[in-house]
Design a protein around this nucleic acid. Structure first.
Lengths: 217, 217
DNA sequence: GGCTTTCGCTACGGCTCGTAGCGTAACTCC
DNA sequence: GGAGTTACGCTACGAGCCGTAGCGAAAGCC
């Protein structure tokens, strides 16, 4: 997540231990924290590199030595928040999904992530490198949770084991897009809260389908 | 969709027929078209008001007389594209949903919408007025399609009629967030194509649930 | 001590923003 | 036809941010 834009890769010496003055890890910490603070106070669009540098007590040039621009910086600043996400084990697939939805939504409702996520994804539509950065720093880590949840549910006998690995991967990707997409859309586009009642309705829909949301009399 | 920021509402005379030089409808057309062209060529972040004005053959001040800023302008410019969305009647709920998903995805894969949608939603997280503008200009019109689809499916006997109107509204909102959210997430975050195969898998999941994506032997 | 890299600082050209001020054009009401 | 009102194109401007260059000093390796 750190260590970006080094002038030239490790050709001369062995991979670890480069020469010259090392980069201050403390500065990294301060910059990322300052970025999150600025996101909360100003939001994505009014956040400027100069302001972040001032908040962090660092020169503006130091920022540009490590991050190519605002988008890359914000991705790294927000990514650590997603690392706190964990899949709870509540004994049943329904309970696990519901809890996961609520945790994910709580994260998206924080002002930092709320204003940052959509913005960086928007930037990424025209920037392949940024897209990859978002994927490895944020998206892929969430997708792991889906895989964990499925494995648990299969062990419990709540979901069938898939024989074809291609189908299995397809299903995992699909379910991930549905869960993340629905929560994001509800939170950021519809701008309505993801409360326990919504999580319950959504989970019911996800597991049993639209035909079952209102059971026939 | 037009007619914004008029200096004072129609107090003196009757509602229609205001005094003074009327606004050029041709200019509106040219500006919105220029905005879409700029979105395609430059993308959201590099689009500037001055550039749009030049493309449209209009003075920059004319833009600011009608739109408060970039976000509002782009919302209106993209909104007309969503008006082309229609719900096909293919005889079954499955076929209708699949077709709708593909049409919606095709719209999101266009360069104009691709770069614009996420960006304006990101701006809207800190701007209630902009959020409302997006809702009435884009979101609510799509939600109607869900209501249409449900009505048809109910008439066909594919979905149960809901007695409680509150539950009915909840379900419609939920299904809307799931469909739109999943397609948007797949297209813009996962950055993978929504092809007929994906649409089929998604529709199956939506209608019958995760327990049914891989039928038990 | 030599070498290399990072750091803070200052300064800069370039771009975009959003507005003000003007004279002119278009339209309505009397 | 004239008076009143609003929209338009144009120019100019201060303000803010961007991203970089150039410097001397600091902090590590050989």
């Amino acid at each position: 997540m750190v260590a970006v834009m080094r002038s030239h890769p490790d050709l001369p010496t062995e991979p670890n231990a480069r020469i010259g003055r090392p980069r201050s890890a403390e500065a990294d910490r301060a910059i990322l924290a300052a970025t999150r603070a600025a996101l909360v106070e100003l939001g994505w669009s009014k956040l400027t590199m100069g302001d972040v540098a001032t908040r962090a007590g660092v020169a503006k040039t130091t920022l540009y030595r490590r991050w190519a621009g605002k988008s890359e910086l914000v991705v790294d600043a927000v990514a650590v928040l997603f690392d706190e996400l964990e899949l709870p084990d509540l004994g049943s697939l329904v309970a696990d999904v519901e809890a996961m939805v609520l945790r994910f939504a709580a994260l998206l409702e924080r002002p930092e992530t709320r204003t940052a996520m959509m913005a960086v994804v928007a930037e990424a539509t025209r920037d392949e490198a940024l897209r990859k950065r978002i994927r490895v720093a944020i998206v892929d880590r969430q997708k792991v949770l889906v895989l964990q949840g499925r494995a648990r549910a299969q062990a419990r006998g709540e979901l069938p084991y898939e024989r074809d690995p291609v189908t299995a991967a397809h299903n995992a990707d699909l379910i991930f897009d549905v869960i993340a997409g629905a929560v994001v859309h509800r939170t950021l586009v519809s701008a309505e809260p993801v409360d326990p009642a919504w999580a319950r309705r959504f989970t019911r829909l996800l597991l049993h389908g639209a035909s079952a949301v209102t059971p026939r009399p």
